[in-house]
Simulated assay, not measured.
Amino acid sequence: MNTLRADTIWRLMAPDDLGYVTTLAARVHPDYPEDTIIFAERLHLAPAGCLSLILDGQFSGYLISHPWRGVLSPPLNTLLDTLPAPADRWYIHDLAIAPQARGKGYAQLAITLAEQAARKAGLNTLTLTSTRHALQFWAKQGFAPEAVSAEEQTILASYDPEARLLSRPIG
């Protein structure tokens, strides 16, 4: 069910949003801690892929995404320094919606916005690392597991033993 309202906006993330991002990330993903500097670096490297959800004037979610290359996902809580070039896919680093805002279509809209950013960058695949808690959500969004190497499996295990690298083509 989509109950998007006129007072809801996904907008480009601003540096002033990073405190809210870190707070929401700790609340929504307590088993997967990341330092504020990780989010700040992604915002610096790919501002077009970093969005904030504002609902009724309140910070209610975020999307952090960026161009990427290959199926070796970034380890949890690790700086990238630079983005790989040329990129061959768009990587969704994190998508978090505050509990009170879930189930209303905001996550699906964020995925659509990530697709738009990928298309603008000339990329036709979305990729992400899903933790065990989110596998069902991402499967409903059309993402399927990628074949991964032993090196990739080690990186995925840094998230949790059931984490999977998932991708889907952009339609």
Rank of each mutant, 00 (worst) to 15 (best):
Y106E: 06
I92R: 02
A147S: 12
L12Y: 11
L53R: 08
A87Q: 02
A25S: 14
L76C: 15
T82M: 10
M13W: 08
E146I: 09
L166K: 09
R89Y: 04
I111C: 06
L55V: 11
D35F: 08
T127I: 12
A121V: 03
P86Q: 02
A85S: 15
L83F: 07
R164Q: 09
N124Q: 14
P84C: 01
A121D: 04
N77T: 07
A46N: 11
T154I: 13
I111W: 06
R168A: 00
L83W: 04
V71C: 10
M1G: 12
A163W: 07
R5I: 06
I9A: 12
I37Y: 06
H29R: 10
I37V: 14
V148K: 01
L123R: 00
E151V: 09
Q108I: 13
T127P: 10
Y62R: 03
G122W: 00
V28G: 07
A147M: 05
G57A: 08
V148G: 01
D88P: 05
L76I: 13
L156M: 09
Y159G: 12
R119K: 12
L24T: 04
S158G: 13
E34D: 12
P169M: 01
P47S: 10
T125Y: 03
T3V: 14
L83Q: 03
R27V: 04
P30W: 13
M1E: 11
T125G: 01
P86C: 05
V21I: 05
P67C: 11
I170P: 09
T3H: 11
E152L: 05
M1L: 13
F137T: 04
Y20E: 13
A110G: 07
L63Y: 07
D35G: 12
G49W: 08
N77H: 08
A107V: 01
G61I: 02
A25Y: 03
I111E: 03
W10G: 05
L95R: 06
A144K: 09
L79P: 13
L95T: 07
G122R: 00
Q136C: 07
L72N: 14
H93S: 10
A107Y: 06
A85G: 07
A101N: 02
I64G: 11
L45Q: 08
G142D: 06
F59L: 10
R5N: 14
R89W: 03
E34R: 01
A26K: 01
T36F: 04
E34I: 01
H93F: 04
G49H: 07
L123N: 07
G105A: 08
I170R: 00
Y106Q: 12
D56F: 05
Q58C: 06
L156C: 03
P99N: 09
L63W: 02
A46C: 10
Q58R: 14
L45I: 12
A14N: 10
A96P: 01
L4Q: 12
M1I: 13
S52M: 05
A87T: 10
L79N: 08
T129E: 04
A87S: 06
W138L: 00
S60W: 03
D16F: 07
G61Q: 05
D35R: 10
N2T: 15
A85R: 13
I38H: 14
R164A: 01
L109Q: 15
L45S: 08
G105H: 09
L79A: 13
D31E: 15
T127Q: 11
